[in-house]
Structure formats: structure tokens, C-alpha cells
């Protein structure tokens, strides 16, 4: 009797399990426990645990907070779009606006210092993708997600969008500079 026909033994649930199967099931079960354990373990010991601190917001309210930061801490203008480059104090709140189709403003951060990033979208869903650090976070409208970042290397970083957001999706790019 094959898998295409009813089991030959009507009481198939009483048949013994093959040794190979038992061995494998035990191994795989333990492996599942190991993988389950790794996630809380990393919460305790790892440095990369995404905060879940989130607030309801509106595009207007969020943009107003970002504008306030830009007015206060802009140090220069940058690139063909004359994007303000903001140098917020270490440890402060940093507002990054996602909208069709740019990340606003540009930022200058200090290596080894921590910043409270606030992420939200003015319109559709976007994907915060920090390269080459390869940190990827979903950005939604009406939600303000607060994430703490601690840059560990100096250099020029790009924020690209990796959630499809219409015909200009591939034009959406912003800059973060990390300095000593």
C-alpha cells in the first residue's frame, strides 16, 4: 500500500515509529527550542533589538516636530535638492520624514553616540533601509516609531526606500553622515 491508497493497517496509529524518524524528530525539536531561545537571549545580550516604542501621530504633527528640529540644528545645505543637514546633539530626538519621494532632512551624527530616531510617513508605506549598515525598518503613516541608533563606524550612509511606494520609489534617497 502506498501513499495513494488507504493505509493497509486500519489501526495505523498503533504502528511503531521508525528509529530514523524518532532520532530526527528529537533533534529537530531540540533545534526548534534552541532557535526559540535565541530571540529572548539576544534581547538580553545583543546590541541589535528593535524598539517597539510607537505613538499615534498625523503627518502634520510629525512634520511640525521635524521642522522644529531642522530650524534649530541645521548646519549646512546638501546636494542638488539643497536638503538641510541637521546635526542634532548626541542623545537627542531625531525626526526623519519619509515622503514621496525623499527622506528629509539629511543628518550628521557622531560615532559611538546614541540618538532617538522618530520615523513616520507623510503618505504611503515606506521602507527605511540604511546602507551599507543594512538596517531595514518598515515606516507607516500615522505611526511614529521611536528607535535608538548607535552608529559604530564613520562615513557616508544612504537611506534608501525598500518598500514600493509608486513610480518614484527608486528616486527616494536620503543621507546620514557619521563623523568622529
Amino acid at each position: 500500500m502506498t501513499s495513494l491508497s488507504p493505509p493497509a493497517n486500519k489501526l495505523w496509529w498503533n504502528e511503531p515509529i521508525e528509529k530514523t524518524e524518532l532520532l530526527w524528530i528529537s533533534l529537530v525539536f531540540v533545534w526548534g527550542l534552541v532557535m526559540t531561545f535565541m530571540m529572548p537571549f539576544w534581547h538580553i545580550t545583543g546590541d541589535q533589538n528593535l524598539s517597539t516604542e510607537t505613538y499615534r501621530t498625523t503627518p502634520e504633527a510629525f512634520l511640525a516636530k521635524a521642522q522644529k528640529m531642522v530650524d534649530k540644528y541645521t548646519v549646512r545645505k546638501d546636494g542638488p535638492r539643497q536638503t538641510p543637514v541637521v546635526k542634532p546633539p548626541a542623545g537627542s530626538d531625531v525626526y526623519l520624514v519619509a515622503r514621496l519621494w525623499d527622506w528629509w532632512p539629511s543628518l550628521e551624527l557622531q560615532k559611538g553616540q546614541s540618538y532617538r530616531f522618530h520615523l513616520s510617513s507623510m503618505d504611503w508605506q515606506h521602507g527605511f533601509s540604511l546602507q551599507p549598515a543594512n538596517i531595514n525598518i518598515q515606516v507607516l503613516p500615522d505611526y511614529e516609531h521611536v528607535v535608538q541608533f548607535t552608529p559604530n563606524k564613520t562615513g557616508e550612509y544612504s537611506v534608501i526606500c525598500n518598500e514600493y511606494c509608486g513610480i518614484g520609489h527608486h528616486l527616494m534617497i536620503g543621507k546620514i553622515y557619521v563623523v568622529d
Binding site: G46, D47, Q48, N49, L50, S51, S114, L130, A133, N134, I135, V147, Q148, F149, T150, P151, N152
Partner: peptide, 9 residues
């Protein structure tokens, strides 16, 4: 790989 990127909290 994850451990090598920025601190994220």
C-alpha cells in the same frame, strides 16, 4: 552579521 551593524535599541 547582525552583531556587526549599528547598535539598535
Amino acid at each position: 552579521y547582525l552583531a556587526e551593524t549599528w547598535g539598535i535599541g
